[in-house]
Structure formats: C-alpha cells, structure tokens
Design a protein around this nucleic acid. Structure first.
Lengths: 366, 366
DNA sequence: CTGTTAGCGCCTTCAA
DNA sequence: TTGAAGGCGCTAACAG
C-alpha cells in the first residue's frame, strides 16, 4: 500500500505539511484562498488520500465503531446492523464487524480487537448469557469492557448489561422490554382461548430467551392460567424445528386418542416460540408432519422479522423496532444522544395475525 | 482513548521497546525465555493492548478488509457477508462494512474510505450497474479502484467487473453464472408446461438482473418458445409486489373472460422473478388478490435465500452458494487462493419446488 | 496566517 | 540476542 502523502502534496504546492493539513482536513484555522486552492489542486493531481491510521494515531481516535453480533446472516442481527450502519454514517464513522456466535470468549476477543484499533465506540447486539459454561468468558468480557471504558471508550449493549460488568462511565445499556411484551402477548392470547400453552425457549441462561419465557408465564398467570410447559432448544430455526417435531408427535397422539374415544376432547395447543425464526422452524415441522396452523395448533413468535412477514399463515408476533434499536444504541454510544439521562426507551407492540387466529381453526387454512 | 503503550511495558519489564515488541507481536527473532516471560507478565499486568493504528502505520498494512454491499439487511448480502466474515477471521483480519444502496458514487466514497484506512483488500458484493444515471459514478468508482490497486490494494468483485475498470494487478472478478443458470431454469420449466412466461426483472442496466433475464430468454428460445414479456421494477420485495399486483389484475381479467366465454381457455402464467425476494413479493401480491400459487400461476425466483426456504408454497429457484461466494471473494482478494489462475468457479443449481409444480395446479394448494 | 518542531505508538534496520 | 535510532503520515502546539 503505497500512496502519496501529505508531505508530497505540500511540497508540490510549495507549502508546509502543516498548512496542507489545515486545508485538506478540517481545522479551526482557515488558510488563505489562494494557498488553499493551490494545495487542493496539488492534492487531487496526486490523488491524495489521507492516511486514516496516521490521523488516528495523531489524534488518538479512529472514526471506527465496532459492532458485535452473533451472526450477521441472522435477519434479527442484520436488521440491527442496518440501523447501526445508518447511525454510523450520520456520525461520519465506519463500522467494524465482528461475529461471535454468542460466545463470551469470542466477544472478549472482539472487544480487544476493537480496542486495539482504537474504535471510538462499541455496540454489542447479541443476547447476554448466564450459562455456567459462559461464566469465565463473561468475566473476561466484563474485564475487557471495563478496561475499554476506562480508556475512554464508549459501549452500548442491547438488551442486558454484560454479566459482571461494573457500571462505569461510558457504559450504556439499551433495555428492551422483552418480559413486558411477552407478558402482554400472553394475556392477549389467553384472553380469547382455552388452549394448552407450550413455550419453545432457547437454552436456559440466555437472557433474551429467559426474559421472554418469564414474561409469557407471568402473562399467563395474570390471566389465571397455569404455567406453560417450556421446551428448551436451540435459539434458532433448527431448534424450533426440533421442538416442533416433538410437539407434532404429541398433537397427533392426542388426535388419535380423541378419535378412538380413548380420551375426551383434547385441548388445542398454542405455541409461543421466543423468536420468529424458531417459530418458523416449529411451524415447518408441524407442517411436515401433516399438521396445519392454526387448525391443529396456533403459534406465535417474537421480533417481527421483516423477511418473514410474507410467511403464511402470517405469524403472530411482537414487533420490535430492530433498526431503530441499532440506531439508538449507536447514538447512545456516541454520546450524541443527550437523552442518555432520559433515553427514549425502546418500545414494541404485540401483532396478532393469522397464525393464532381462532376463527380459522375450524377450517383448514394453511 | 488512553491505554498503556509498548514503551511502558518495556520499561516495567526493564527491557527496550524493541525487545518488548519482539516478544509481544510476532517477529522472526525469538528473545530469551526469561526475558520473554518478564515482558509478557508486564504486558498483562498493565493490560497492554497493541495499538493497531500505530502498527499499521509502521508496517503500512492494517489487517482490515472492506466489504461493500447494497444493504446489509438484505438476506442475499447478509449471507455473503457471513462468508466474508468467516474468511476474514481465517486470515486474522477484521471486516469494515459499507452500505451503498448500489449507488456507484457512494461505492466510490466507500473505496476511498477503505483506502484511507489502508484496508488490505476490498470485496464488492453488490450488482454492477450500467444505467445512464450511474455513468459518472461508475467512472469515478473505476478510477478510485484503479488507484487503490496501483497502490497495492487487492479487490474482488462479485459478479461483474466494475464498469470501466481497467484490468490491473490485484483486481479479481468472481464470476457468477447467472445467465447460464437462468437459461437452465427456463428450459427446465419450459420442458413440462405450456405456460405463458413473464419475467419480473429489476431496472434495466443492473447486470445481475439483466443477465438473468437474458439467460431466461435464451433458455426459452432454446425450447422453441417466444421471448417472454419483461416487467421492469425495483430489484427488491416491493418491486416484486408491484409487478405482482399488475399481473394479478391481468390474470383475473383472463379468468373472467374465460368464464364468460369471451375467450378461449387462457394459458396459465409462469412468472420468473429475477431474485427470491422479488418472487416472494410477487407471490404475496397474487395472494392478496385472492389468487393461489401454483393453481392460478406458477412462480420461480433466484438465489435460494435460506430464510425463505420455509415459505409456502416452497419457492422454485436457483441455488447460489452465497456464503461460499463471500468466502471465495475474500480469499481471492487475499491472494490466499493460488487458484487465481484456475479459480474454482462458482456453481449453482436449479431447484424446482412446489411453486412451479404443475401437478398441483388443478387443486387449490397454498 | 504560515512554518517549525515535536511527538502519537510501533516496527525495523543497524550496531553492539 | 538485545538496544539505539530513525521513520511510518499526520496533527498540534508553538513561534514567526
């Protein structure tokens, strides 16, 4: 990587590097028109591009913002990433991407790498984990973040604070009302049916999942219903699919029992998958087993992933402003938002669609 | 951003910065065990993190790889990004993300920004455009890329070369057989039906779209069929939806004519949307107009987007190894792949599913 | 307003 | 093997 330098430009323009710097890159001082013109001409005749590394070194700031996600191909993270990217652009920064599959140890590495690059701020988008196997990783991550913040870095975490993180200057948490929204979803669903509820959750210890499970149970309780059974599985499409297979077997067994008169009319199952992708997986499983939604079972998800909106039957879910969350987190970490004191909170809303539509249960409607 | 420096570590360990550097960061020379130990201890007692900017400045290389996409939230790009990210990780590099909505002018900016950061290589994933309004932007982009390459940068472009780019050292194009695959798709579809074909394409001038349209027409011609009508619209879900609305009207009109005996039996329509997202949009439009697929019309897409696989009716499409494409491009740009001479080409394959299943046309099957 | 002088933190010859 | 010195490209004080 060889390129013309500021010094070369300056020489060609017959001025000092300092002057060239002043005209080419922002500075409080404004050089004379004639000189400025000369420098600018020299600059683009040489195709000069400032060396951001050198600038960063000199100013000790990089114009970089680090983004940590579990998986950039997951539509949930992709949507957040879009928001982050947008906000970064507004701030005139670039985003550095790191994917970690949710492993705190990897996240720690990513933070260290961002710190090494002197990223101005870091946005952590993936769900926090309190699983025992992540304990050590979490501690290291917390330590790394702490150091980063002490060195003047800004951090914004989506959802929950990093386990063990000591609150310090420059550490912001963008709370997502997962629990409340899940509770609302539960009560709206419970209000109009007599179903048997089952929750398909992620691994225990994953905050986002746990919150949603807890909230849903709370909503059920508030409606005077017993707690739902919780099936723990992977926090992704295939996890949902597996759980769906198991549930399908159960549903079919119940149908069979019912048909043979062995048991009284079995209650229908209403499935709550803690995210849309899992819900889609579960729905696919039911369908592959010959069951139909909402006829044989109803189902709801969480997130309201855009790409999944055209899925049929339309998935009942909880809308989350993913892109906005990304933007907010980024702004928060930039200190741009003075509203750090009273940050505009993230809000979502329950969106009931056909996948939980009772009126359709009688008729076969895929 | 204040952090402990190599000098501090060296002082604490009682050695020279040079030695500390040799211990902490890779070097040919290996310092003595005892000394090395001392340095390492000093380093992490101070929480030393090397300043990548300074390292980059000194070595003039950054460990950065720039990725340019239209929109990171688009599942097509998200999938490619995953591959890029993976390959970058293998190479021990980090990825810098830029989104441009496909505007060459923005892409030029992005390249300049990457160059400023001294990115080791750049991967451009978005479709190239030859639209008149992009002419100037393309020229600038080509110039910028050329300069970047001349300065030692490596560039890999997915699909087509940038319009006007003069082939230079370090400029790689990862060809995607869009045309061939589209032709194959057309012939496979044509082989088993007597439908009236309609193509929903992106704006004229978008290479990826144009290639697929051309290929499809070629396949039709090879099957002895007349060229299909092409509807030009946005290269995204809403473009597909709009086109779908128009087609739905036409289909319904034909049905009405048929019912009233005004016309003879109208032939069914087989829609080819140049990408999956557009196909889904079109399908949604038909559905919202009360039409069913494949009963009232069949439809096929292109890309085989993972998130869309659970869509019903399952979408016929052309599978593209998106993630692998991202990986390959990244490797190519790293010079890692000696196979630049005989690079393993990208291959895809036609995947026919229910959305074009003729046997289902008689029965209503969503 | 312009030029000069120091570094920013690190790597890399070159001597020792 | 280790240390000393110079420079990567730029900015920020300080003179003039």
């Amino acid at each position: 990587m060889v390129a013309s330098t500021l010094t070369e430009v300056a020489r060609l323009a017959g001025v000092s590097p300092a002057t060239a710097s002043r005209v080419l890159n922002g500075s409080a001082r404004k050089p004379g028109q004639d000189i400025a013109e000369r420098v600018r001409k020299a600059a683009d005749s040489l195709g000069y591009i400032p060396n951001a590394q050198a600038q960063g070194l000199a100013k000790s700031s990089s114009g970089l913002i680090g983004l940590i996600v579990h998986d950039i191909a997951d539509p949930y993270f992709a949507a957040i990433a879009r928001g982050v990217q947008e906000a970064a652009r507004e701030q005139g920064r670039m985003v550095l991407l790191a994917t970690t599959a949710g492993a705190p140890a990897d996240e720690k590495e990513a933070v260290a790498a961002f710190a090494a690059r002197r990223a101005d701020s870091i946005v952590i988008a993936g769900s926090r984990s309190a699983r025992p196997e992540d304990q050590d990783g979490n501690a290291e991550l917390a330590a790394e973040l702490d150091r980063y913040c002490r060195n003047g870095g800004q951090v914004a975490v989506v959802g929950h604070a990093v386990v063990g993180a000591s609150v310090s200057e420059g550490y912001h948490v963008l709370t997502v009302p997962n629990e409340e929204l899940a509770a609302t979803l539960a009560s709206e669903l419970a209000a109009m049916r007599d179903d048997h509820f089952v929750i398909i959750g992620g691994p225990a210890g994953l905050f986002t999942s746990d919150d949603r499970v807890r909230g849903f149970q709370r909503g059920l309780a508030a409606a005077g219903l017993p707690a739902a059974e919780v099936i723990r599985t992977g926090f992704n499409r295939s996890g949902g699919f597996e759980a769906g297979v198991a549930l399908a077997a159960r549903i079919k067994a119940a149908h069979a029992a019912e048909d043979s008169g062995t048991s009284q009319t079995s209650r229908r199952i209403c499935i709550f998958a803690v995210n849309d992708v899992m819900a889609i997986g579960a729905a696919a499983a039911l369908r592959s087993e010959g069951l139909r939604i909402p006829r044989d079972a109803t189902i709801a998800g969480f997130d309201d992933i855009e790409t999944l909106r055209d899925f049929r039957p339309a998935l009942s879910t909880v809308h989350l402003p993913l892109e906005e969350i990304g933007r907010q987190a980024t702004r928060r970490a930039a200190g741009t938002a003075d509203d750090d004191a009273a940050p505009s909170p993230v809000t979502g809303h329950v969106t009931l669609r056909r996948s939980t539509d009772l009126k359709l249960q009688a008729s076969a409607s895929d």
